[in-house]
Amino acid sequence: MKEKLNIIVTGVGGQGVITAATLLGKTAVASNVNVLVSEVHGMAQRGGVVDCTVRMGNVHSPLLTRGSADVILSSEPVEALRQLDKVNDETVVITDVNPVIPSTVAVTGEKYPKIEEVFKELKKHCKLVTLDAHALAEQAGSVLTKNVVLLGALSALDILPFPKDLLLDTIIKSFPEKYASVNKKAFELGREAVLSQREA
């Protein structure tokens, strides 16, 4: 692995963002890799933005500097773009394609940009990978596994300092046994979605 790995996990409150970041942190600890996971709680729970940083390897601060993200893992397109300041040309942005329209759009008339515009901007600045994580989670058996789909997608990039099976093992062990097969399927579907795009 690189000396340092900087990941931002982002999305909207309720999408399992903090859980996904924590699972990465747990797997890092299980493989004896130094890790710091930072999150902001509180008001963010009520439909607000949730972003977490996951830093692995030879790092000091839990926060990462402008342009230093290796990966942005986002469960919402606009939230991926909100992290633009953290990307560089080499950054891989993995995002779900499904927008979550904030209530401000209906109530105060703010505009949600066109999805194509969002992706166009991201492509200008970094490497973009999109997937319909929502549909894949549904296919796996529960929309709640969207974060696991995204972790599967992340595992396909081959930059994590631990084998993908260890990440999957951590995920499965972190939830009641009855969800094991759904989580496994979600993970594999997410991974497959990225691998197939790479081949294409």
Binding site: G47, G67, V78, T104, V105, E110, P113, E121
Partner: peptide
């Protein structure tokens, strides 16, 4: 050595916490 701040070209809707 840090890159300049990237201004977001699109205006993004705010996402404040709201009552559920």
């Amino acid at each position: 050595p840090l890159p300049d701040t990237k201004e977001n070209p699109l205006s993004l809707p705010s996402r404040p916490p709201v009552m559920c």
